[in-house]
Design a protein around this nucleic acid. Structure first.
Lengths: 122, 122, 122, 122
DNA sequence: GTGGTCTAGACCACA
DNA sequence: GTGGTCTAGACCACC
């Protein structure tokens, strides 16, 4: 889990996104236990309260489920879960197109630049 | 000029970016006068201090220059100006690739999704 | 016995209340044996420690008594027992009135709403 | 605004309820500004962070709306707002009936006890 | 001054 | 040990 402490985006929201991405990538699966907030806090060198906040946000969004004294788990009965990957991907595509349009770049050039950069980086 | 008041990105930085984008699009040209901070504040429904700060930032970056009593103008002798478009475009591409990689999406599918969405939206 | 695991009210106190209610309803009588904490824990899917704590609390309140090696029993010589029903009922009435007053609802309307809901539910 | 610091119900949720009740009573109206979290914290002798949490919860529920640097206001375009009073009243009635049923008390006696208590208290 | 994030550390109920 | 609330106080962006 990678956090950017200089980003204006709050850490706890970055953490929510990281979990969503891990789900999209298939690294996290429904039913999986995620580390306790205290453990996670040590791993990420972050305050336990910050982790708690991220976890509560995830629960509010229906991503996880909490069992008193047992831990926090990825929900498996949620429709959200199925669609996370495509939704987040679609959002990224939209953002990209919007950014490029804002710079006055035409669709063909968008595709071109993408191809070039992908080739360069292998 | 579009601002997102709920974004974690500071409004004054959003304003700087909007000016850069207008330059990239060719809507603003070297030598153009930009509105006084009071005018701009009314236009955008934003506190004059915020506009001031955005203008200071632009000046600091060498994007604009202020002529006493005459207003703020887009500089034309700046090397930055030439490269704004390609730099911002490259940043958008990088961001897009990073986002998609984070979701475990392969290069071919990135290009595919981009094409599909561009076609859908005309 | 119904427990709400998401209520802020501690589970062991919910259990005490449930026993009191069963007494009020006449489902439990003085002298009745209540299940061992292990049995009860399995029945309610609750940690045995939690049941223990509920039992301790009941004993502290003079509701039950424990006979070594024989189990826990509802006491019958307790003055508390006689008044449980009316006390809890009175508390419920008070709570109701307070809640409704908090909403700015007048006594007549309280009675009216109660009647309507009771009729609707048969 | 009355808080019960000994209640198992978290203070920040009590605060949300108090605001809802004030709305139901008509003491708070759409568009009204509520005290800043720091001011409120002093008034209630509570930590500012606790107030913040209550305010954020209200915003999440669509009760209020926040304007950066200006304060927190009761929303006026929310359907929720219209129905708060009846919803909360209905919830109180349901709770009352459930409590009384739990004690084995019949509908007629519920109404009777309510009437008696209301008369006693004037 | 106003909303908002983060840290640090205490304390509680439950497993 | 695990979730969860509360306090105290720093720091930031914006009004």
């Amino acid at each position: 889990m990678q956090l950017n402490f200089n980003s204006p985006k709050p850490i706890y929201l970055q953490m929510v996104d990281e979990v969503k991405k891990a789900l999209a990538r298939g690294e996290l699966k429904p039913g999986d236990k995620i580390p306790s907030h205290k453990e996670q806090a040590q791993l990420l060198q972050v305050n336990p309260n910050t982790v708690m906040r991220a976890y509560q946000e995830m629960e509010r969004e229906g991503l996880t489920e909490t069992l008193r004294g047992q831990g926090t788990f990825i929900k498996n009965d949620s429709a959200i879960l199925q669609s996370i990957r495509s939704e987040m991907a679609q959002a990224a595509v939209q953002q990209f197109i919007e950014d490029m349009r804002g710079l006055g770049i035409e669709p063909e050039e968008m595709a071109h630049m993408l191809r070039v950069t992908l080739n360069k980086e292998g």
